[in-house]
Amino acid sequence: AEDTGVRVELAEDDDGKKTSIALKLWVEDHKKLKGKYKESGAIEFTFDLEKEVPEVVAQEMVESGFFHESDAKTVGKSIKDRVALIKWRRGRMASVAV
């Protein structure tokens, strides 16, 4: 997989039922973050698996001052990949249960 330097993982256990789930995003290269957020690195947020779009959340992060506009695509892709994995795992768990 392409290494974007942006990691997204679950910030809570996935019970397979909730549509809104807590995710945590962090960057390996702090230079990607803007201004005062350079000293931080992890951003936690909730994401609705059914209603929300990863690219929109990435844009909100840009507008909130975390990232440069040029990184919106990378951030959106990282969230999208994680969301796809969560959905895939849920689908797999459901089929095993059946």
Binding site: W26, S40, A42, F45
Partner: peptide, 27 residues
């Protein structure tokens, strides 16, 4: 700790915190 909350105009809440040391060099 250095956690902080940022609320976007759309209403989404972002919680900002330092990355754990062991995560920084993870490959």
């Amino acid at each position: 700790s250095a956690t902080a909350q940022v609320v976007h105009s759309a209403g989404r809440r972002f919680i900002v915190s330092p990355v754990p040391e062991d995560r920084l060099k993870e490959q």
